[in-house]
Design a protein around this nucleic acid. Structure first.
Length: 468
DNA sequence: ATGTTC
């Protein structure tokens, strides 16, 4: 990794090296990427629009030891070390486990719920009432704590939760939700791995809280069924962040000359700490899944209060994890997904014994809070390493959005469209629609490549986001 | 993403 200089880095020259495969993606092979195949699932227009600064990040993605394939998703944008919107496959025996390609928010992901309520029931008054009912039950914003009973558990119970995952949570707390619709029932954590002391406290207090940034809750209308859906985007809060920080320090201590920041950090196959980090990812992944289920339960209660009807779980899935999977070209590999969603089609061994074995599992793709979100079904997704995008992707940095977008104009636009934002109608400006790419254009890149088909287009009716 | 620059 160290001393890796880019012989053709900088500028737009790299784009002319991208070769259309004719199968929905470009391949990129340069002196910098070496022998590692790189596939970019972009339309020509998305390729033209993408920031040049992702090129050195794609190169970084190819340079961890034992990388077999790098996949770039159509929502790609500049990230921490490697792009947000990529999958990196590494050899399970000889390959690295990298930290940047998982990110700080380990286990971050989506949960979608559906109802049989016709969307006409969501009058402007009820959209606001839904936001109010949710805000009594779920705290929004960085640093906020949970208000559900799960936020008042003791240390021993917290440890049982992060080891036992959705399975333990459901057995112990008896949620009405069908936990079989979570991507992972329990990500195994080795008995011998100790939960680092001092890393649990924040996580304990924050269970059931949403967080800030691009995390959100949304009431939606399905264009296909005409009924109301609710969607949540959240992760492992301070718990996963604390573990990511801690294991970055561990990785840096092993290779101080090479590793200065989390985006450069990785564990070699022979590092005794590689397994420790994988256990931390498992614990934070379990936490994030439980957090989404706890919030989903609160959303169902809020929905019941406002619409006197039930919400059912559609699916729950992460887009920031490293997991061991089977891939036809490589066998068993570690798949790092950073802002990228797993997409197993019918027949994948990872779905054996689940209700998705003959259909593939649903894939949850949020758009901005002005644009449609999607529920997709994986089809011919082996060529993208069973990976699709995780959202629309940013097209403006937060700083650029704050500088270029007019608060009043944005708020007026949402109001005209009937999208109720928080309680005051003030759209967090760096999260506003224009700061994101078109979700339709990004999803078209996925469907044209044959990776998945569209099952639901979900249009925002009410949006909740932390303001700090 | 984040006790939002330990």
């Amino acid at each position: 990794m160290s001393g890796s200089t880019l012989r053709s880095g900088g500028g737009t020259a790299w784009k002319s090296r991208c070769v259309d495969s004719g199968d929905g993606y470009f391949t990129l092979a340069t002196e910098d990427t070496g022998t590692v195949p790189v596939r970019l699932f972009l339309t020509p227009r998305l390729l033209e629009d993408v920031e040049d600064s992702i090129y050195p990040q794609v190169v970084t993605a190819t340079r961890f030891p034992g990388v077999r394939l790098v996949v770039i998703t159509p929502d790609v944008h500049h990230g921490y070390g490697v792009p947000v919107g990529c999958a990196i496959l590494t050899d399970v025996d000889a390959g690295a486990i990298a930290l940047g390609p998982v990110g700080f928010d380990i286990g971050c992901g989506m949960c979608s719920l559906s109802s049989a309520v016709p969307a006409g029931a969501a009058t402007p008054e009820r959209r606001m009432a839904f936001n109010r009912a949710v805000m009594r039950r779920v705290r929004l914003g960085a640093g906020e704590r949970g208000v559900s009973r799960l936020a008042r558990i003791d240390r021993a119970e917290f440890e049982r939760l992060v080891r036992g995952g959705a399975e333990y949570y459901t057995e112990r707390y008896g949620t009405r939700l069908d936990r079989a619709r979570a991507e992972r029932q329990r990500i195994p954590v080795d008995e011998g791995w100790q939960l680092p002391s001092g890393r649990a406290d924040r996580g304990m207090a924050q269970l059931g809280s949403l967080g800030g940034g691009n995390h959100f809750i949304e009431l939606q209308r399905s264009a296909q069924s005409g009924t109301l859906f609710v969607q949540v985007h959240t992760g492992s809060r301070g718990f996963g962040h604390g573990l990511a920080e801690m294991y970055f320090q561990v990785a840096r201590a092993e290779r101080p000359a090479e590793i200065q920041s989390l985006d450069e950090a990785w564990f070699a196959a022979d590092s005794p700490r590689r397994a420790d980090y994988l256990n931390a990812v498992a614990a934070a992944g379990n936490y994030a899944i439980i957090n989404r289920l706890v919030i989903a339960e609160e959303l169902a209660a809020a929905f019941r209060e406002v619409f006197t009807a039930e919400l059912e779980l559609v699916y729950e899935i992460s887009h920031n994890l490293v997991q061991r999977e089977w891939h036809p070209d490589f066998g068993e590999v570690h798949v790092h997904r950073k802002g990228a969603t797993r997409a197993f089609p019918a027949g994948h061994p990872g779905l054996d014994g689940t209700q998705w074995a003959t259909t593939g599992h649903p894939v949850l793709i949020p758009g901005s809070n002005r644009d449609q979100s999607y529920i997709l079904r994986p089809r011919n997704s082996a060529k993208s390493a069973y990976t699709v995008n995780h959202g629309a992707g940013r097209r403006m940095s937060r700083t650029a959005a704050r500088k270029q977008l007019d608060q009043r104009q944005i708020d007026d636009e949402y109001r005209r469209q009937g999208i109720v934002v928080n309680l005051d109608g003030r759209v967090p400006i760096d999260e506003a629609g224009p700061a994101y790419k078109s979700s339709r254009e990004v999803v078209e890149a996925v469907t044209r490549a044959g990776l998945a088909t569209v099952e639901h287009e979900l249009w925002p009716l009410a949006s909740l986001k932390g303001t700090r």
